[in-house]
Design a protein around this nucleic acid. Structure first.
Lengths: 208, 208
DNA sequence: GTATCAATAACCTAAACGGGTTAATTTCGA
DNA sequence: TCGAAATTAACCCGTTTAGGTTATTGATAC
């Protein structure tokens, strides 16, 4: 008995599920240890008996596979989850990656591609089309449509580390009053009215 | 004269630069309109006369190409920039993508791959290895090592929209005092001591 | 079945913050 | 060279926040 890489499936279509299991068990490196047919039992089962790799449908009947991914990753942060999807370039795929998936596989893909994707994930890769990759990359590039002055940007930067007026004044070598002055201007430009709101906006829209 | 797609190069190695220019000009869809050999003149020239695509070395002599990318994107947010790099899986590549690049090309790649990558970017893709893709994906997945209670998570979520105690109390149908109570607990668990600090930590470490 | 924790609520006090107003100096572009 | 914008600084006043203390209820765990 070899030391096989264990795989669990979460897929409500029984035909697809069993053919995937067969495909996996026909290799001499992978073994399918569990098949779940809904999200709830999948999450519970995987947390109880974690495999090395999970293949998970995101179009499940009871609840979104996205939530399932979040839950599993909360308990098992290092488990590699690969999303099964019917259509490429789905917004679901993007959200699944945000939730913690390591890549995705089109259900209609060839057996070589499916096994290849699993290998890729195990080797630290993230199989995805360049379109999805572009969405992912774009999502953390700053948009930069605001017109904050350089000094205001510095103040905002310090603000986003959670500093008080006094602490910001100290690191920028200006008076607390001047910090307050800049903050007023920043609030006006960002259309906010408190420190936490400014921090939230700056970090969410990647202004800093 | 056809309506060619214009390309500008920023590359300090004159040999590489001219052979790339030849490669580009030998196609019947691209034309190389400018060649710059350092970052500073590249940034200035590109902003003055923007091409459709920029190929940019990130190992430039005068200053980091990463900064150059940031500057160009600040002025021309929609310009597609492709990074030229000597070695794959470089941390530089990752940072370049964060700064606004749309993909990258290994200098030693075949001519087909180079032209293919340009086409890919023009078609909305982001050419990159799955290893880099994994780095990118990981960078926005939450780590979630904290132990906030469900209710505390809800409060933190509202906090991250910039709400005051009173506003949070209203949307969660609890008293302001209870919001305050949860915040105290959250501060202790996150090791922070103000709203903006909590928001910064929550957003930066993707707790929400 | 009791102990621990989550969620709810209240009060007090000092510190921090937000909005309004005014003003000097510098710097940069038209 | 003149004006606009940026940076610096100060004061007042009312509101919001942070930290400390105490307490009840329900659920979960051991």
């Amino acid at each position: 008995m070899k030391n096989l890489i264990t795989v669990s499936l979460v897929e409500d279509d029984l035909d697809i599920c069993s053919s995937l299991a067969k495909l996996i068990n026909n290799t001499n490196v992978f073994t399918c240890i569990h098949q779940y047919h809904d999200c709830q039992s999948g999450v519970e089962g995987i947390v109880k008996d974690p495999p090395n790799i999970v293949l998970m449908d995101i179009g499940l009947p009871d609840r979104s596979g996205i939530e399932g991914i979040s839950e599993i990753r909360a308990k098992l942060p290092d488990l590699n989850i690969i999303v099964l999807t019917a259509h490429e370039n789905d917004d679901y795929v993007f959200n699944a990656l945000c939730a913690g998936a390591s890549g995705y596989i089109i259900k209609e893909a060839s057996t070589e591609r499916i096994l290849g994707a699993i290998h890729e994930v195990l080797n630290g890769g993230a199989p995805m089309s360049t379109q999805i990759a572009r969405m992912v990359v774009k999502s953390f590039q700053r948009k930069n449509t605001t017109t904050l002055s350089p000094r205001e940007m510095e103040v905002l930067n310090e603000l986003c580390t959670g500093k008080s007026y006094k602490m910001i004044a100290d690191v920028l070598f200006i008076s607390e009053e001047t910090v307050r002055r800049h903050l007023k201007s920043i609030y006006k430009k960002l259309h906010v009215s408190s420190k936490s709101e400014a921090v939230a906006k700056a970090l969410k829209e990647r202004l800093i």
